[in-house]
């Protein structure tokens, strides 16, 4: 888990920087249209990167929150509950994100 958190961190550093540059400096955020998003998403490489971005970010974020709570000294039933809720939230986020992405590239209509 610890190692995974570091590996995802390293990956996220690169992709997040890329994401920011692309959508704020290259394309301006206020000029985003459905057309543009669709065009980008149709590129398999971009789509794959964005999907990986989603999964790693979710893992890194959810695991980070979990660790923060463990550091506060949580244990027993609340801990199990937190684990379940965070896991569920993470899964839902990935599912919804994937659905959105698939709509965006026109795979689902």
């Amino acid at each position: 888990m610890w190692l995974l958190q570091r590996v995802t961190a390293a990956f996220l550093v690169v992709v997040l920087a890329f994401h920011f540059f692309l959508l704020h400096f290259y394309h301006h955020a206020f000029e985003i249209t459905l057309m543009g998003t669709q065009t980008r998403m149709q590129d398999v490489g971009y789509f794959a990167t964005m999907w990986l971005f989603l999964v790693t970010a979710t893992f890194h974020g959810v695991n980070g929150v979990y660790n923060a709570l463990v550091n506060q000294g949580i244990s027993g039933t609340p801990k199990t509950a937190v684990k379940a809720i965070l896991g569920l939230a993470g899964l839902l986020l990935v599912a919804q994100g994937t659905r959105v992405a698939l709509y965006m590239n026109g795979f689902l209509a």
Binding site: L34, T37, L54, L93, Q96, G97, R99, V100, Y103, M104, G106, L108, A109
Partner: peptide
């Protein structure tokens, strides 16, 4: 992700 989800109805 919630904001981007508006892409679904848009696509439809």
């Amino acid at each position: 992700i919630a904001v981007l989800s508006t892409a679904i109805p848009a696509q439809q």
